[in-house]
């Protein structure tokens, strides 16, 4: 197991190195001009300002030198300065990451609970009307454009009915949380602040619902097909033929085996979550990594683009590593060499 983890970790480092090179090349070998994107029209016409700007960001050096400088700083945890905000990117990412983490945890909880429940019901009522409806719901989940779904949910539940706030993580007029973990819901629980807990939950529920809907669709499909497969196995027939009640057959024999592959799909769903994050965070003004990535990309803020891409790729790979390890723990048939 330890050898397996070490091998995976070394592969992760190699892949990350490649990712950094890839993103660096994409953002530096392109026709569009970052100087033009970040300086005003009048400043562009002054060659001195342009030259000073290029020198400041190392844009006048050859490409490989720029990359080596970047890599050296990266090793020291320095991702450079954002062109858009003028602040260190590392600090900004640290500030934005907890918001995304909080949102994705809630989205994942919603997706797992509903997805597994729907999947089980769908398999048990196979080809009956309930199955058809739930399958339609799960296909809708993966077919909804999340940017549009976010707008619809927002206009219904916050603009029209007014149940939930439409933007941000917390009401800034009432609360200004600082310190703590940065996960406002968790902080509120730790501090015993009931009003803040209520406010933070009200803010997170809509975006988490929109975000979780897609992953829910994936999990429903997977749970259904796994459970159907397991239910056709010999040991299920044995359990039934010795007179065990159907509910015990499902609970004690089928479910735990059917749910193992769901773990993998949950990992895939998480990757989609990170993508959907861009829309949901932008629309709900949620100050997280998705919104940061959008602002970086549209402003051609190359250092920030590289930084946020590395963070997202790392998160994704670490989560997949954790899931593969978890797989070995819950399924004794799998042992890593």
């Amino acid at each position: 197991m330890l050898r397996y983890i070490l091998r995976r970790l070394s592969l992760l480092v190699i892949t990350l190195f490649g990712v950094s090179l890839m993103v660096f090349l994409i953002s530096h070998l392109v026709p569009s001009n970052p100087v033009a994107a970040n300086l005003s029209q009048s400043a562009m016409s002054d060659p001195q300002i342009v030259a000073a700007y290029e020198a400041k960001w190392g844009l006048d050096k050859p490409l490989y030198e720029q990359y080596l400088i970047y890599l050296k700083n990266l090793m020291q945890g320095d991702l450079g300065i954002s062109i858009r905000t003028g602040r260190p990117i590392m600090d900004e990412l640290k500030q934005y990451f907890p918001a995304t983490l909080e949102l994705s945890i809630f989205a994942m909880i919603i997706a797992l609970i509903l997805g597994i429940l729907f999947g089980i019901l769908s398999a048990l009522y196979r080809n009956k009307p309930l199955d058809q409806i739930l399958r339609a719901v799960s296909v809708s989940g993966v077919s909804l454009p999340s940017f549009w779904f976010a707008l619809v949910v927002m206009s219904i539940f916050s603009k029209n009915i007014g149940w939930f706030p439409s933007s941000g993580r917390i009401d800034p007029r009432v609360f200004s949380p600082s310190g703590g973990t940065g996960l406002y819901v968790l902080d509120a629980v730790l501090w015993g602040d009931f009003l803040m807990l209520k406010d933070a939950l009200a803010h997170v529920i809509l975006p988490a619902m929109v975000l979780g809907f897609f992953t829910m669709g994936l999990i429903t499909r997977q749970t259904r097909s796994n459970l159907l497969e397991v239910l056709s196995k010999d040991y299920i027939r044995t359990a039934r033929s010795k007179g065990m009640s159907e509910s015990r057959v499902i609970k004690n024999h089928a479910l735990n085996n059917a749910l193992i592959p769901v773990v993998t799909v949950a990992g895939m769903g998480f990757s989609n979550l990170l993508g959907g994050m861009v829309f949901v965070e932008t629309i709900f003004s949620w100050p997280g990594i998705g919104q940061y990535a959008y602002l970086a990309a549209t402003n051609l803020d190359f250092p920030a683009i590289c930084g946020v891409s590395l963070l997202i790729a790392t998160t994704y790979m670490v989560i997949n590593l954790l899931i593969d390890m978890l797989y070995g723990v819950i399924d004794p048939r799998i042992r890593y060499q």
Binding site: S271, V278, A293, I305, S309
Partner: peptide, 12 residues
């Protein structure tokens, strides 16, 4: 190792 949308966004 990227969510498709993020990489497409960066390239585009």
């Amino acid at each position: 190792s990227f969510p498709p949308l993020i990489l497409a966004m960066v390239i585009a």
